[in-house]
Design a protein around this nucleic acid. Sequence first.
DNA 1: TTTTGAGTTGTTCGA
DNA 2: GTCGAACAACTCAAA
Length: 514
Amino acid sequence: MAEAGRRVVSRKARTKTTSGDPSLVWFRHDLRLQDHPALDEAAGTGAPVIPVYIHAPEEEGAWAPGEAGRWWLHQSLKSLDAGLRRLGSRLVLRRGASADVLAKIAGETGARTVFWHARYEPAAFARDEAVEAGLLRRGLKVRALSGSLLHEPQDVCTKQWTPFQVFTPFWRACTARGEPPVPLPAPARLEAPKRWPKSVALGSLGLEPKLGWTTGLQATWPPGPAGAAERLSSFLEGATISYHDDRDRPDLEGTSKLSPYLHVGAISSRQVWHEVRAWATSTRRSGATEGADAFLRQLIWREFAYHLLCHFPETPEQPLRSKYAAFPWSKDPQALRAWQRGRTGYPFVDAGMRQLWATGWMHNRVRMVVASFLVKHLLLPWQVGAEWFWDTLVDADLANNTLGWQWAAGCGADAAPYFRIFNPVTQGKRYDPDGDYVRQWVPELSQLPTKWLHEPWAAPKTVLSESGIELGQTYPEPIVEHAFARKRALAALASIKGVPPSPSPKRSRGRKQP
DNA sequence: TTTTGAGTTGTTCGA
DNA sequence: GTCGAACAACTCAAA
């Protein structure tokens, strides 16, 4: 149904825009060739297509890509350019104000139409509106299409026409809309313009960090659609079947690890959705449907994150539940640094933080545990954690990061109940039962018997010394005692119990169709 | 407008 | 060791 609708729109537009004039395709978080409605529609006109990427970090507000994100962007752009060249095309790279750059390239090439996919981050959304208005003023046509989500944020709403704030009803509403559109194939070839406009070198954008700390990243993340396809097929072969059971196990390869690819759009959510569905119907192994459904539900969480970001655009900075603005957060740079560096003295937490630093990624279960630890054990504001994740995650995505941190802090939509304070020892024992994960990322504890691995302070002195561990020297003492921290967090939460939600500003506002 | 049932991911305590 | 209850009150979404 939805698929038919989208294709009808495309066809209509195609006849309308058909002419010999070139088109610009403005690439942003859609660095791929397959299932790229904007590229598909531009190529469908038969006229030359000029793929453009504009480096304009100042237009992203407070959320320009961090270190890891910039590195990943660099790799992803390089891969996109290579893919375009295989189609007889190339990526034109520029820096500067997006509206000016697009108008300038259009002027240089005689392009009449600019295609792109909607973005939903508040700064990018506002920027896109301004760019569109500016281009229209200059007599250019704009085709802003849907290309990054399964369901547009304004297409899913409650019976009262309000945005959802609880996942399960949101998920049901998505399900009721039926299967998302099937992915489009990549264009067979792209018509080149008579003369290519000039392009700056990728290296000149300064996306790659100067220092050579990216070795771990390179080994972990082969970029582009090829890297994404590789990840997806190995997930389908290996882990989808057991996803329901293994997805919480950071010591196993139980998750898809597709988040970095989804963020830059090296693969689309629709491609993932349909490949997983196809796999589930074709495989005869038992548990396939269960595993696939559990995974597809996670894709809907991504939709939910975008839905919330779109309708509550202040949430990257402000708690959705406004009374949390009165929460008595502390300020403790030393504790923050211990958390960031993986030196809290809780092995499971430290393993996660070190995995993040080394690979630009952290298992989701561990993200919850380290987030809970920062917010509830250390009483540091969730925004501080969100900023650190933003800078270090290869998959740093404003919608997902915001949802995750507000959930962990208890101040978001569908938040964790106040009493849900993770015990980092219990979580470690449950989800890293053999200690493989901790041993990998906290090697100074690797000789410690599994029995004590998640709580080295509880080990007998002889065991510690036989394992080559001196607490406070080779590995830190716990930065805060769990039972104490738990009581302190509950007391802090109780202190805002009666605080009424602030009456203004009005938070919920729908946004018009991009 | 009011009512009703429900809400991703836990922990602790005591029987 | 296992198991069930308690842990607040609040807000959302639908009827």
